[in-house]
Amino acid sequence: MRKPRLCAAVSTALSLLFLLPLLSGCGAERRYSREFYGLFDTVITVTAADASPASFDRRCGALYEELSAYHRLTDAYHTYDGVVNLKTLNDTAAAGPVEVDERLFGLLSFGKEAYRLTEGRVNICMGSVLALWHEKREEGLADPASASLPEEPALKEAARHISPDALVLDETAKTVFYADALLKVDLGAVAKGYAADAAAAFAKENGWSSAVLSLGGNVIAWGAPPGGGLWRVGVENPDPAADQLLETLSLTDRTVVTSGDYQRYYTVNGKNYCHIIDPDSLYPPAYCRAVTVVDKSSARADALSTALFLLPVEAGEELLSRIEGAEALWVLPDGGVRATAGMEPFLGG
């Protein structure tokens, strides 16, 4: 009679074993992370709940392909076989309408929308002005001793060719035409956010019900992290002497995007010049050190964080009051922090 009892004991114990993961809340899914390079001039990190390393790998691969497509379409410096991309447009769209992939068309349409939304602060048609700054910044970083600013007359001349009206989009034919021969489009203020939204939609469809994706600090999070609760997204401190993050936001089904002067800049005669340029003054603004936007759409958050960086705080608050659902946190020049009232529920993580 001993054996059956042993069996009963073992089976009781085994059944409890199978219940254990449920009891401990682990479930079948675990947390996996990956980082990859080569896209959007930045590092992309993804953390997701998945059933196994193999399935996480497979979904990462699919996500990489999806993001690669956006990267190629929005690349202004390289051409790819069989791809009509931003470089193609900047090189040839002044000669006549060019048919483009609907993803690039969608992004250009969003760019024009962003101009209206931000009341002219974000202008994807500023490429000619931004190219002058880009060139000087690259030279200045390579050889700091001889760093210089773009020539004022060159900036003024370039600024004559930044009208969004010159970017002609034909919704039906999906064609793009540059009505100004010197127009250059730069998608820097919107491409990562737009791609983040698309990548998140793709990843959800492809089986990740819970993940956080970061395109170089352009963060989008959905679902609940393994273990429950909310995702925790840090806001970087612009002060390099600080000993911790500025804030930690607790959220999900939101995106967090920061625009700041503390990463991409170069120095001329002891003064720092960042990569975000005011479309009116044609120089970097100095209203704040950084702005972080929390929103549901990463494309919109990307555009808004740039726009708010280009506005005095009060004017930015006014702009936001006309936009439903977007919240912001400013780091002022003296290091002080200011946030919209709607930011409160995310703070204090």
Binding site: Y37, T42, P225, R232, V233, G234, E236, T292
Partner: peptide, 29 residues
């Protein structure tokens, strides 16, 4: 979750597995 990135070198150093979960993050914006 805090991380220092060197893009030109495709290099990162990330803090992981600390005993104190307080202050940890899943991403930084």
């Amino acid at each position: 979750g805090e991380c220092i990135v060197c893009l030109p070198h495709c290099f990162t150093v990330t803090v992981e597995q600390t005993a104190a979960p307080e202050g940890g993050v899943d991403a930084v914006a």
